[in-house]
Design a protein around this nucleic acid. Structure first.
Lengths: 170, 170
DNA sequence: TCTCATTATTCGAAATTCGTACTGCTATGC
DNA sequence: GCATAGCAGTACGAATTTCGAATAATGAGA
């Protein structure tokens, strides 16, 4: 018999909401606020055992569904500018296909399928113009799945809520 | 008379390089790889004491120069879609001015001054269409500093390297 | 050289994490 | 219906880490 009334609470906590994966969401939400929050504290807040949190978090991390990283103030840490590119896919090609191809390139940090003037909007980081030119040459012009690419080089970044574009430098 | 030969090493480690703040950079670099790395391990890798790492990290965090957060892959974690908006500023207005105004809105998570078809590209998160409409109504059409807004609602997000757009939900 | 202020280190206590065995649940097959 | 394999959660002692606070080292200025 559990000393704590967790067994019942756990069942409740999980059935109240969606299937059961909601626990992961709650864990993530807490870790988004503080990536170093102790497992034991998360466990306490969510009324499960520390081991559960540990299992879930390491599972999420192993599957690359969760990363816990430090971010230093972008104002303090100057970083490479990037370019936005509006893409129109070729006839007979779906945006999904192009997205899945470009996804593999580490310089592409953002891909969004949109309605409107473009089919896809992607964000590209590059340390210098050479990298940009190379990307255009190999990934855009060398492929026949893209009909048109509207390149808009970044001039200044005013706001970026996220940012972790450093690991492509290795 | 330290048991470990750190005293001498520390002096070296700091004088070898730039002034002394390089230690912070090295700490940040390690935490960028793994935000949960133990202080004691960082200390070992950088040849300083655990207490130093602890002091530095908490100092950096207190000054908002460092944040340690979890980031989840949006492919796994469904989240509210967002819209990309290409903006052309009105005559006599600089992109910077518009950026500084929009920057205050928590729904705007990304602002980039670009060359090309648009002056500014912004990314907007919204839980529903109402939020998008409201934003357009109050921030775009009600202002006379924007000449044209090209709204491209997101259909599907394929890749998003960063993402921590949760704190606008409070 | 002597202070003073700041930063680094040390060390024992408290807290956390880890390994691992155990429990309970579910689905599958006999 | 019943046994069993697989899986997720729990429990608990051991190893590790973090914390608090005192001590030591460093560097700048008088």
């Amino acid at each position: 018999m559990a000393v704590k009334k967790q067994s019942s609470v756990r069942a409740t906590a999980q059935s109240i909401r969606s299937p059961k994966d909601d626990l992961n969401q709650q864990i993530i939400r807490l870790l988004q606020q503080d990536g170093r929050m102790a497992f034991s504290e998360i466990a306490q807040q969510l009324n499960v055992s520390e081991g559960t949190i540990r299992n879930r978090v390491s599972g999420l991390r192993d599957n690359n569904m969760l990363r816990i990283v430090a971010m230093s103030d972008p104002v303090a840490t100057e970083y490479t500018t990037d370019a936005m590119i509006g893409l129109n896919v070729a006839v007979g090609v779906t945006p999904r296909q192009v997205a899945e191809r470009l996804e593999k390139n580490p310089r592409v940090v953002f891909i969004l399928w949109v309605a409107g003037r473009y089919d896809l909007i992607i964000e590209l980081v590059s340390d210098d113009d050479d990298a940009l030119r190379e990307f255009l040459e190999h990934e855009i012009h060398a492929s026949d799945d893209i009909a048109k690419a509207d390149v808009m080089p970044g001039l200044k970044n005013f706001k970026n809520q996220f940012l972790l574009k450093q690991d492509l430098k290795e």
